[in-house]
């Protein structure tokens, strides 16, 4: 027996899919800007482990000598990025969706269990719900990161007029570092997000477009916690859904 269960409201699907290309354009145009002063690297002492970015990377994405163009795109699409993000936060607050998204007091412990489970270290599956604990932490963190990008971005954009904002960010040069690190964060988020979506499968992915998930239930088995199932007479259980005859079933 299958059952259609509403998962993502239309508004959230819009915000999600608008954000995807807009953030991509922000990261790309950000690279065009960063190239003009590409001083960041990871290493210790004189040893460089990772240079942001190798010339081959710049070449592959046609980055060099496009600073003016990068600034133009960045300072146009920043509005879409901001408005979409702001509307999303506003929506989650007003609709009550925030209840599924904000971590609660169990989340941080459970998020750890999700990680161990996903890495095949821990067998037991942590509670999923609409979003599991790791998702709650990740999806809330990404909003904090977004706010951080807007604040540090404004601090770099108008460091004299918004001098107080620049000061909060630890000065001009440090604000630029935070802004950059947050972008690396988005890129890592994106990679993990894609892997998780692939692992979670079609039903989960479809929900981000259609809004619903398909739940499989068995007709006669009551949906009750296993510890209670012996105590509850089977006959009292009511099937969760009623569905028409399965004639003319389209091939999936």
């Amino acid at each position: 027996m299958k059952k259609i269960v509403k998962k993502h409201p239309l508004a959230i699907r819009w915000f999600h899919w608008v954000n995807f290309p807009v953030l991509a354009i922000m990261i790309w145009s950000g690279l065009l800007i960063y190239w003009a002063n590409d001083v960041y690297k990871v290493g210790f002492g004189d040893k460089t482990l990772l240079k942001f970015f190798p010339d081959s990377f710049y070449k592959a994405f046609n980055i060099p000598f496009r600073l003016a163009e990068g600034m133009a795109y960045h300072f146009v699409f920043m509005w879409l990025f901001f408005i979409n993000g702001f509307a999303y936060v506003l929506y989650t607050v007003i609709s009550g969706e925030w209840r599924y998204l904000l971590p609660n007091r169990h989340s941080f412990k459970e998020a750890w269990q999700v990680l161990l489970h996903d890495l095949r270290i821990r067998k037991a599956k942590p509670p999923q719900g609409k979003y599991n604990a790791a998702q709650r932490v990740a999806y809330s963190a990404i909003i904090v990161m977004g706010i951080g990008s807007v604040i540090t971005g404004l601090a770099i954009y108008k460091p004299v007029q918004l001098w107080w904002l620049c000061a909060i960010c630890g000065g001009y040069a440090f604000a630029r570092i935070i802004h950059f690190v947050l972008t690396i964060g988005y890129s890592l988020f994106f990679v993990i997000h894609i892997i998780q979506v692939i692992l979670a499968g079609w039903n989960n992915f479809r929900a981000m477009i259609t809004g619903f998930e398909v739940e499989k239930t068995k007709d006669d088995i009551p949906v009750v916690p296993s510890s209670l199932s012996e105590a509850v007479p089977v006959a009292q259980a009511v099937p969760v859904t009623q569905a028409g005859p399965d004639e003319e079933q389209p091939a999936n």
Binding site: M1, K3, I4, A243, G244, E248, N252
Partner: peptide
């Protein structure tokens, strides 16, 4: 429609 048809 059946559930399956509705899903499609």
């Amino acid at each position: 429609l059946t559930t399956d048809q509705l899903i499609v």
